[in-house]
């Protein structure tokens, strides 16, 4: 039964990801992305990580995806029904494969430092203690990095307007 639920959720997520790759209409692409992100949240729940699942839904489905959709609707009103499908490109594929390899390597090393996030209230406490205790400098640095990235995007897009 548990294996069945895992594969069912995984299938939903893969179907969503596949839709993102092949969709020609922006709206279908967004729907696929939403399905994929919800599927990932479902997998977190399946492995008893409600904190991660709720954060995933809050930040990615409710926040990031809504902003994507918002930007696309505001900026690409004319093209959205005839958006170009993504063509296969060796460069893009190798960049994606490279990122995947880096992630796998990094996750292998993490093993020892990982925390058990599967035990209800204790898990919330444990995650909080780690993020605001031992890993506080790293946590703040990541926040600073995201902020710099945001300002950079604004600067670049404003620069394009001026040209």
């Amino acid at each position: 039964m548990s294996a069945v639920s895992f594969w069912l959720i995984a299938l939903v997520a893969i179907a969503g990801a596949w839709t993102v790759l092949v969709a020609r209409e922006t709206i279908r692409l967004i729907a696929g992305l939403g399905t994929f992100l919800l599927g990932i949240a479902g997998l977190y729940l399946r492995f008893a990580m409600p904190l991660l699942a709720a954060s995933q839904v809050f930040l990615y489905v409710g926040g990031v995806l809504a902003l994507f959709l918002f930007a696309i609707m505001a900026l690409r009103r004319d093209e959205d029904r005839a958006g170009p499908a993504v063509r296969f490109s060796v460069v893009h594929a190798s960049v994606a494969a490279g990122i995947f390899a880096v992630l796998v390597t990094a996750l292998r090393d993490v093993g020892a430092a990982s925390v058990d996030v599967t035990a209800g209230q204790d898990a919330v406490d444990a995650v909080g203690a780690l993020l605001l205790g031992r890993f506080l400098p790293a946590f703040e640095l990541v926040g600073g990095l995201l902020f710099v990235a945001l300002v950079a995007v604004l600067a670049i897009s404003a620069g394009e307007d001026r040209r």
Binding site: F58, V61, G62, V124
Partner: peptide, 17 residues
């Protein structure tokens, strides 16, 4: 659930879509 408050705030944000 132990994350009920977050769940309550997170799930309705899907309806924005």
């Amino acid at each position: 659930t132990s994350v009920g408050a977050l769940f309550f705030l997170a799930v309705p944000s899907v309806s924005v879509l």
